[in-house]
Amino acid sequence: MKLTDKELEVVEILSKNARLPLETIAKMVSLSIEETEQIVRKLEEEKVIVQYAAIVDWRKIDGHEGVTAMIDVKVTPKRGVGFDEVAERIYRFPEVKSVYLMSGAYDLSVVIEGRSMSEIAKFVSEKLSTLDSVISTTTHFILKKYKHDGTVFEQGDQDKRIVMSP
């Protein structure tokens, strides 16, 4: 769908900070609060904005540090449905956080989160590898997250400017 310039601006603003007060967003795009609210509602209804979620640094929460793995999956596509059917079988598992169809050496890139390495190992060996169309899997565990969805986790964001200048 084609968005107007103002709609696009609202999307951009919300994608960076979904918690800004409507009043502030309205001023930023020079619209009334009502007009802005209408735009947000339309974006939500049309599923342009799919979800509002927080980016959490789970490492900071004791007992919830968790483990994330990226799994390269090679599969045999099926006539008629291609990769979609097997992708769906995989993404329905709640521990699977994302699934992408990739160009290159493998077909699906699966990101999975679990409480421990053994939990993920269990998922791979019992659920993923046993799927009919899955030919092979390669599991990469994430050791440290530096930047996620455009956000740097440990950011030194203090203002280095002098307090007043001409």
Partner: peptide, 28 residues
């Protein structure tokens, strides 16, 4: 002397100041 100087000294001596007096971008 530049009239900004006095305010600079005053603002620099205080804590918790929000400065809208900066003549440069806030981007690195």
């Amino acid at each position: 002397p530049s009239g900004i100087r006095r305010f600079f000294d005053l603002a620099a001596s205080m804590e918790g100041v929000i400065s809208l007096g900066v003549g440069e971008p806030d981007f690195v």
